[in-house]
Design a protein around this nucleic acid. Structure first.
Lengths: 238, 238
DNA sequence: TTTCAGCCTTGATGTAGGTCAATGCCTTAG
DNA sequence: CTAAGGCATTGACCTACATCAAGGCTGAAA
């Protein structure tokens, strides 16, 4: 599962696109790349478990990672889905003592970069700019989680699902008012804290009411204004 | 509500105890204090509203602040309660564009310090150590919010309440197995995403079962092992 | 082509906890 | 002392969603 790096491949351009590395100079980036590892995961393969010592953080290159918790009864709740280009577990750099707070597993075949916390932290010491970027990203995550808690406590399942669909809508809304679900419905359901059965029923009801049309993993949003009205959302998305 | 500072008072010792200021040198701290403001809030008085431009962050000196959201129907959900010594809204320094993500209001008479984001950020540029501390604190918040989401989605109201009580238990468990609720039950209920009626009923049931004893705002934990068993919690608290 | 495993859907039923409403404290103000 | 407003408690009822169970569809493996 874990590669030695092909030393001829040049990852610098790819990495610079990730905000965590965009402020590093060439030498710094080279240092990161030197100890970086490439990891391949099969569908269903675990990356780390909750409680494992958190010595590394990750950037998804392709595929999809789910971060999840398990209840004592074994129920799974997906906290976050990590898509290509996104990083995760980097916020733990500063409190690694407790270990990873979630399990991480590949939803599908996935390729990711892994980085050593200490190496990266050493670089941060020389780059306040990078510190600021990292803090901005943490701040954004914090903000997102507040929205998450808000949705879970103040809004019902239909709201959450519709909000999700609208948020997944690509930019050029006019041309393509449809959403390609990134993964199995049951996975998205867990992400939204909804049972698969309920998820299915809500989609069925929205279809019956003519608001959407479902065709496998494609959801066509037939009446976006009505959907927006349904959730009466003055919030900014995200 | 907002004071000019009595220039003779020396707040440096008090501030140094807050982690955000512990790494600053004397000059830096003096600069912070120069523009710091002292704010008094009456019970029920609002500090800021969700969406207000976030130009300042705060440290509670005494009293209690609630950070909350409102649903379109006007239902209130307390996201966090901020006790003396704790700071809040400092994570927004790096994405103030969006404004405060919550409302803030004094639950009781409250006194707090307020600081300018830009002044503090300027200092951060000279103190990577302070950056690291801030990041550690943000990381901790992130972690706590994951636990929060976990509790909301994987655990029922009784679990949440019992977990709260156990977590509120003072260190010297043996001598005083009782918890002094920091504020009105209805406030704690909202913090835990429970209706006041349900909160009351759960306390009543736990009393009937002999696990606790309630006397106004004091809750005596009569059978801590049983309470722990009830929530079967291998998690670390917090 | 057949088979099997995953996933999805749909129906029937159960339940935690929310809502509504009445009543009973305390506490503060007069 | 009395009144009034806020909070807590208790009961009756309701509903959103979970759970349990039974097919059905699809796509990959044999």
């Amino acid at each position: 599962m874990e590669h030695d790096l092909d030393s001829r491949t040049d990852f610098t351009d790819e990495l610079r696109r990730a905000y965590l590395f965009s402020e590093l100079d060439d030498d710094q980036l080279a240092e990161v790349v030197r100890e970086m590892r490439l990891i391949d995961l099969d569908k269903g393969e675990r990356l780390f478990e909750q409680g494992d010592p958190a010595r590394r953080f990750f950037v998804v290159r392709r595929g999809l990672i789910k971060l999840y918790r398990l209840s004592p009864e074994g129920h799974e709740k997906i906290i976050e889905l990590i898509a290509p280009g996104q990083s995760f577990a980097e916020a733990l750099m500063f409190m690694a003592a407790n270990g990873y707070p979630v399990h991480a597993e590949a939803v599908e075949t996935t390729e990711l970069f892994s980085f050593d916390n200490e190496v990266y932290k050493a670089l941060l010491r020389d780059s306040v700019e990078s510190c600021f970027r990292l803090m901005a990203s943490m701040s954004m995550r914090l903000h997102k989680q507040i929205n998450e808690i808000d949705r879970l406590t103040l809004h019902n399942a239909t709201y959450r699902l519709v909000a999700y669909l609208l948020q997944e809508l690509p930019e050029e809304v006019v041309t393509s008012p449809d959403v390609q679900l990134t993964t199995a419905k049951s996975v998205i359901a867990s992400r939204l804290s909804i049972q698969p059965e309920t998820f299915s029923r809500i989609l069925a009801r929205l279809s019956r009411d003519g608001l959407i049309e479902v065709e496998g993993n494609r959801v066509l949003l037939r009446d976006i204004p009505a959907l927006r009205r349904l959730i009466e959302l003055p919030d900014s998305p995200g």
